[in-house]
């Protein structure tokens, strides 16, 4: 039996809201294998984005272990976590999160710039990705000159530029019209087909049901963990 790419073991996270503690992740146990396509669904406040941020090392658990690609990330210092994030994880956000003063090419190449990679290699890699994503004509455009679908493709290029093992998408179609949304999902699914592990947080049931494995969250717990075409499992 192969080791999971991502292993969450008894992960807990609690926020203080006023005087009251709010348990946003409650004893989460989850294994994700390499190359899986998972959707995480659930009502607002159920903890799905927090779970995604936890896996993306943007947040630290209060307790529990999070192992990514054999690295016990819960024990890492800030600098090391940033390195793991940069090299292993790609993020796609609902509102694209592009820097307005940078061109599409520069935005997409940002993680490589942070890694200190030479500009020639950066340009080559971004050109490849833009060509793959059908936006090769938009390299030198500023974000304000691009449509929503194009912006999200630039964001996907940025997420993919370091060839990560894991792609995390938080409501990737949330700010797009339906057609652009489906186009973006098609792109993400094709990347998953090529072997990347894809986790998508969504409110959209139709979109969530396209994933091979579907997680449902309620009150900080994974209430359902089912695989497409199979029955629902009650999860931890």
């Amino acid at each position: 039996m192969t080791k999971p790419l991502i292993n969450l073991n008894e992960i807990n996270k609690c926020y203080q809201v006023g005087d009251q503690p709010l348990q946003v992740l409650n004893n989460i146990k989850l294994n994700i294998d390499s190359g899986e396509y998972i959707s995480i669904m659930g009502p607002s406040g159920s903890g799905k984005s927090t779970l995604l941020n936890m896996i993306g090392l943007l947040d630290r658990p209060d307790s529990g272990q999070l192992i990514i690609d054999d690295i016990p990330t819960h024990a890492l210092e800030e600098e090391q976590r940033a390195k793991v994030r940069r090299n292993n994880i790609g993020f796609i956000f609902q509102n694209f999160q592009l820097i307005p003063r940078l061109t599409a090419e520069e935005n997409a190449a940002l993680p490589m710039m942070l890694a200190g990679i030479d500009i020639k290699i950066r340009k080559q890699r971004v050109a490849e990705l833009f060509s793959q994503l059908g936006i090769e004509q938009r390299l030198h455009h500023l974000p304000k000159q691009l449509s929503g679908g194009q912006l999200q493709r630039v964001a996907i290029a940025r997420a993919m530029v370091m060839s990560p093992k894991i792609l995390l998408a938080d409501e990737p179609t949330g700010n797009l019209d339906q057609r652009s949304g489906w186009d973006v999902i098609d792109v993400l699914e094709s990347l998953n087909t090529e072997g990347i592990t894809l986790l998508v947080v969504t409110h959209d049931l139709q979109l969530g049901q396209r994933a091979a494995r579907q997680l449902a969250m309620v009150d900080g717990k994974i209430s359902e963990d089912c695989t497409k075409g199979e029955g629902h499992d009650q999860a931890s």
């Binding site: 943007l58 800030e78 940033a82 942070l114 890694a115 940025r158 370091m162």
Partner: peptide, 15 residues
């Protein structure tokens, strides 16, 4: 937002 993004895509606090 830019600072948050830079950290999200791998910039350390020192960077």
């Amino acid at each position: 937002a830019e600072i948050g993004l830079l950290k999200a895509i791998g910039a350390s606090s020192n960077e």
